[in-house]
Write a protein that binds this DNA or RNA. Structure first.
Lengths: 119, 119
DNA sequence: GCTCGGCATCGATGGATGTCAATGCCTGAC
DNA sequence: GTCAGGCATTGACATCCATCGATGCCGAGC
């Protein structure tokens, strides 16, 4: 339904940690989950994610991400790197430009971690 | 199904911000959402939330929260304060002790913010 | 009154993080 | 080869944040 451009290849996303509300979190699981939520704990990164997730092309050129968030190019590049390291986005070089796309499955994992306990 | 003890009163929880994957986030919404996710971006706070959410009594005495997370009493108190300020937990004094309970609706709000865009 | 126990607050410290200017590295065009 | 543009990296700086010891406050019991 989209994509004149091929979408970026989606990586496998590993689940993580029992849902917070279902079982007591182990210390290791808590560290890992916190690391992932930390990627969402910045306004610039949330705006970037939102821009990527809502673009009808399914991906956005890095050159089109700087102006909307109102930060310098190095700062945007820095946040994109963090998002990439958190597995929330993927990137791909296309000629001179770099295109970014969200990894929906990675957001789903975080969503599941907040799911209510069964019954 | 629970509660010999009365559960803590649940406050109203205000929704916040269009879902990240549905519409482009405004700058203000992004700041507010980031503030809420920041409350989840720490292992100790996630463990505390998990302890509260999974306790069959629906609430836990602060005195029973220090040992499980392996941090000092002031540190635990500090994190509980942040969780309270983020609206993720509520507290109530019962005699000498203070009891804490999660606010499930507040976690649901964060979950909804990560919901996939409607088809 | 005094004392003890539970929790919050304060103050200090070390480490993580957001930001930007300057710079480096590629790639494509000429 | 040279040049220009796009993005990443570096270095520096300021700010925030997690942590803990010490201390304060308050309620219950004596």
């Amino acid at each position: 339904m989209v994509a004149e451009l091929p979408l970026l290849a989606q990586p496998e996303v590993e689940a993580c940690c029992a849902p917070v509300r279902t079982a007591a979190l182990s210390s290791d699981d808590a560290v890992e989950l916190a690391r992932r939520f930390a990627a969402l704990a910045d306004p610039v990164r949330l705006q970037l994610l939102s821009l990527l997730a809502t673009d009808p092309r399914g991906a956005v050129c890095a050159c089109d991400l700087v102006e909307p968030v109102g930060k310098s190019q190095p700062t945007v590049s820095h946040h994109l790197k963090l998002l990439r390291e958190a597995g929330l986005v993927v990137s791909e070089k296309r000629g001179v430009n770099v295109w970014y796309a969200v990894v929906p499955a990675a957001l789903d994992v975080l969503r599941d971690a907040l799911a209510p306990a069964p019954s």
